[in-house]
Design a protein around this nucleic acid. Structure first.
Lengths: 163, 163
DNA sequence: TCAATATCATTTCATTTGCAACGATTTTTA
DNA sequence: TAAAAATCGTTGCAAATGAAATGATATTGA
């Protein structure tokens, strides 16, 4: 292929990055405006909703955030009163992080909005095409899973594929 | 929908972010190792290959990078000798940025590797499914185009859709 | 039992990032 | 033509980020 035939705007990694960033930013407008949440905080809250009281390490392993980023997100969320930290019962190193009532209420506020935005995107195409879309994403993940240079998937993202 | 039915791992914005980041990181391994390039520098180089001598503003408008980030990427690339800055001929405010021989050579090195990685991903699915995949991405962009809260697309990414 | 190793959450530090402000130049308008 | 407004690239600054180090606690193995 000649060098000059290369188009950035048709390059898969670039296209993925552009769409992903655009979607994320659109979403941030909502939960930033309503509750002052950043992406990391949003992910932590949602994970807690499903998994109850968990450690920083567990969140890190599940939602694709580096450990320090999780730790800082939890600190901010605790300061806002949306989560609480309890010293580990059996293991003094662990911290059990869980939603407070206020955190639960915040999620009840934001989740419908987030879901509505997601649906505005998914409803723009047919169910068949949407399924193909996710299948393709999964196929690309599978390629990376087999690539020793690629970062491994989190346990939770892997579990997702086995439904 | 009950709150507890919400799965982060099936949430479209999250899935996009995870795949995009994974692909970008895989790519960074290559052009980081071979030429010490970051994503912004990579995008600038590739844009210059297509568009010759252009301004910072033009790059900013084309490759989805904030203006200061472009400016800093260009500074680094110039220090490495991969691009050159020429004072604008007709407009003293403008700077004409273009590839040097060394920059061209670096691209000749990296582009085949980047293309190979891209193909390892796209070849994992049928051409039909891949077309559907990109059609769905475009449909989602179209939704955001109609959303006043969303950030507009760059001119180049828009032009891409009209082929 | 107790020293060596491993694990957990946090913090430190250097770097990156984006917003806003800036000086310099050009264009517009009165 | 002269002043006002707009545009260009860069820089200041505060916040975010990731890698590595740290202190604290658990676990392992001699």
């Amino acid at each position: 292929m000649s060098l000059d035939d290369f188009h950035l705007s048709t390059f898969l990694p670039y296209r993925l990055a552009v769409l992903s960033e655009r979607v994320s930013k659109r979403l941030s407008v909502e939960y930033g405006r309503t509750h002052g949440l950043a992406v990391a905080e949003w992910r932590v809250l949602v994970h807690l909703l499903r998994c109850g009281a968990v450690s920083v390490r567990d969140i890190h392993n599940c939602v694709n955030l580096e450990k320090p980023r999780v730790s800082r997100a939890v600190t901010r969320l605790e300061a806002e009163g949306l989560v609480q930290k309890t010293p580990g019962a059996h293991d003094g190193r662990l911290v059990a992080i869980s939603l407070t009532k206020k955190g639960h209420a915040a999620l009840a506020d934001i989740l419908p909005v987030a879901t509505r935005i997601e649906e505005s995107l998914t409803h723009a195409v047919s169910p068949d095409d949407l399924k193909t879309f996710f299948d393709v994403m999964e196929a690309m993940h599978a390629v990376l899973d087999a690539d020793p240079e690629a970062k491994p998937r989190t346990s939770l993202d892997l579990a997702q594929t086995q439904e």
